[in-house]
């Protein structure tokens, strides 16, 4: 795989990670975390670890995002700090 694509995805990983910890809206943080997981999944796939990429896509980007959204729905959407 070309290194340009690698670099773009890595940049997205960093942006999504920084966004997920700085954003005040917790629902947005959950979605950004899902995006982060999906970018990591792409990175795993590029590096040839297809099984890990599959797990990351189903668990990280799929189910854990749903769990986060459910938890936000039952608690509060705004952080205090």
């Amino acid at each position: 795989m070309t290194w340009e694509l690698d670099l773009i995805i890595l940049a997205f990983v960093v942006i999504a990670a920084l966004g997920a910890i700085t954003i005040r809206d917790l629902l947005g943080a959950a979605i950004l975390f899902g995006a982060y997981s999906f970018m990591m999944c792409l990175l795993w796939a590029i590096m040839g670890a297809v099984d890990v990429a599959f797990t990351e896509a189903s668990v990280g980007a799929g189910v854990s995002t749903v769990f986060f959204v459910a938890a936000v729905f039952r608690t509060t959407r705004r952080t205090k700090d």
Binding site: V50, D51, A53, F54, T55, S58, V59, G62, V63, V66
Partner: peptide, 29 residues
């Protein structure tokens, strides 16, 4: 398919189980 075909392609119990569970979660949503 993911569970049963884990011997030949990427996949296996963990991924297949998560997909099975998320199908029920999709029903709940």
């Amino acid at each position: 398919y993911v569970i049963a075909h884990g011997h030949y392609s990427p996949g296996g119990g963990f991924q297949g189980g998560v997909i099975l569970g998320s199908s029920i979660i999709l029903l709940a949503i």
